[in-house]
Design a protein around this nucleic acid. Structure first.
Lengths: 357, 357
DNA sequence: CAGCCATTTGCACACGTGTGCATTGGCAGC
DNA sequence: GCTGCCAATGCACACGTGTGCAAATGGCTG
């Protein structure tokens, strides 16, 4: 599969030591103190020497050693971002938002994947701590209660994004989308179209959003005077929280939903909805004529597939930006405010009135 | 849009100093030297005190300070990864592969976006250097010749992934997919189906892969004894290298391609192909009956859309893994071998014989 | 019993930068 | 000329960890 081609120059000549302020000091005939101050534009240093030293630093190709600075100042200007899956289209946008804000604030971002495994999540956070990040962001966290006290001990400002842990914790900050509202918007849309038998397809890999969206679904049905039937709800068992897995869950769920006799399906997320659509395509079921399908998230793909998916839009980039903003506030010793973002219904072409029976 | 909800505990109680090996030494009644050695399992320390100190460290909740370690050892166990766009489905997988290998080697990854802007790419690399990363990975690099000498000065092991820079540079290492071969596979597939008027749609935002795929396209046509016509080739001007932009380019390109009278279109990547498909959908053109469309990359979405896209699969995760592996070799003072990965044709349902005219 | 060696521990310095305080030199005011 | 003040610079230490070398201890051998 792979073929060697060119061979780069061997890294034999060991990387010579980087030049430091001491080197500049030697050349300039001053102390390293003066250089340090000159480079930071300290008013203690005369305009003249300041310019001279800055010029010299430039000529010598000096790059400040952030490691040494961090050790001294006890701030690394670094944050850790833990996500369940890097290739998840939903999380990609969140990461993008985080990086965007972090970068403009002069912070660098460590990215690590947890694969939806609490153990790995803890390991990732410990690594972040070891590297003395100034703050930590965790998307779809599944940290359990027993680890909370360790987090308390570490005492690094932490913000959770759409936490999947069932128990909240007053020490942690968070940013999340209102799942309950989103689910209600979706189901009310289907009800308004005339559907009466509406199914819900969720996954156990994200327990909290699954439960909350289920509750929103049930609330909407109840408001319409409908008693939700047990067989309308399909929760697929899954450990991994990957797009592939979600699609598979969606595909597998279709049969059960059809057996339950629903005319519309509300899915926990877009990938599962796409799985349902693919299964429909395979079985020759016309969407939305015979069956309506609604997703959740509004990932890029939702508008690209055929039929374009009716879904609930989560402000994904905004979620990342906001989480990073909250973390910035915490780093500036301000109190961090938690946020609940409102999702939005996006009607496309995968939903329509039920077939006249 | 957002509503404040709970208010977290104010971070007022300033994070007390982390405990250090000196603290452990004090409690254990030994010197910090002994603690340092004991924690690193040095044979210089007696089994007994080693155990005792390790136990103590555990009880006191000690976490080694990687910053201080880095300053001392001059290795940060850190790599920088620069990508043009974080939310790009192609790059997401590459990032995933990189992170996977890096993590299993005990390295942490800094992630930064360059937005396909050489200036920002340089700034990102400078930041990585300031943080003294052990190595740098750049996906879709656009670094120009004049910056090369600066890179030479920095002297950080660097590996390029699918570099878009036209001029190669012997000091840098790289991993790439064989664009020329991929394009030939795609076009030969269309030729085998009977197409004779085949178009090419590319974008100027990734000049190198655009050129190479164009060359592969031309080579395939030439091999079939066809003289490629100028109007069959559409290169869309674009600065940004984002999925959205690519889709737009694809949509806009369709008209020109139809005017040129082609019966099949080979696109520089899947997002552009999706753009073409969407434009077809809008104009009521049936794919593949009236027009065949072939993409490049084989992103997740390619198999989810309707019709499922015929495309050229790039081993994306493998690309990331391999790049990181080459970097690891370089870090271990071994010579780094450059690699060319072979892409693979994936035939789905967006390609078929041309309509009988 | 002296001397040697192995084992275990600590001293002191290094990594590169930031900063409180002391020091130096120049100049104005008396 | 002396004093006081201000501007400019340097000394020395700190941040937390790793390591070469010296030192202490104890056991063993000649």
């Amino acid at each position: 599969m792979s073929s060697p081609s060119a061979t780069g120059r061997v890294a034999g000549t060991r990387r010579s030591r980087e030049i430091s302020i001491a080197d500049i000091a030697r050349v300039a005939g001053v102390s390293h103190t003066t250089v340090s101050r000159a480079l930071r534009d300290s008013p203690l240093i005369s305009q003249e020497t300041r310019k001279r030293i800055q010029q010299l630093a430039l000529e010598m190709g000096y790059t400040p050693n952030a490691i040494a600075q961090s050790l001294q100042t006890r701030r690394t200007s670094t944050v850790g971002l833990a996500v369940t899956s890097i290739a998840d289209p939903f999380l990609s946008e969140v990461v993008r938002g985080v990086e965007e804000v972090a970068r403009s604030a002069g912070l660098s971002v460590f990215l690590s994947a947890t694969h939806n495994d609490p153990e790995q999540e803890i390991a990732v956070i410990e690594t972040f701590h070891r590297r003395r990040v100034d703050g930590i962001l965790v998307a779809s966290s599944r940290i359990t209660g027993e680890y909370k006290q360790r987090l308390d001990q570490i005492r690094v400002p932490t913000v959770l994004i759409n936490s999947q842990a069932e128990s909240q914790y007053e020490l942690l900050h968070w940013v999340a989308v209102d799942d309950l509202l989103g689910a209600r918007l979706a189901v009310e849309h289907l009800l308004a179209l005339g559907h009466r038998a509406i199914g819900y397809v969720g996954t156990s890999s994200r327990p909290r959003s699954c439960r909350q969206r289920l509750e929103g679904y049930q609330a909407a049905l109840a408001s319409a005077g409908l008693a939700p039937r047990e067989e309308w709800v399909t929760i697929m068992a899954a450990e991994e929280a990957s797009p592939q897995e979600d699609v598979l869950c969606g595909r597998r769920a279709l049969l059960r939903q059809l057996d339950a006799g629903v005319t519309a399906i509300f899915c926990q997320n877009d990938m599962m909805a796409i799985g349902v659509l693919m299964a429909c395509h395979r079985r020759g079921i016309a969407v939305p004529r015979e069956l309506s399908v609604v997703g959740f998230d509004d990932i890029e793909m939702a508008s690209c597939i055929i039929p374009p998916l009716t879904t609930v839009r989560q402000p994904r980039i905004e979620l990342g930006r906001l989480a990073m903003q909250v973390l910035l506030d915490l780093l500036h010793e301000q109190e961090g405010r938690n946020h609940v973002l409102a999702p939005m219904l996006v009607v496309r072409e995968s939903s329509a009135p039920p077939p006249a029976s």
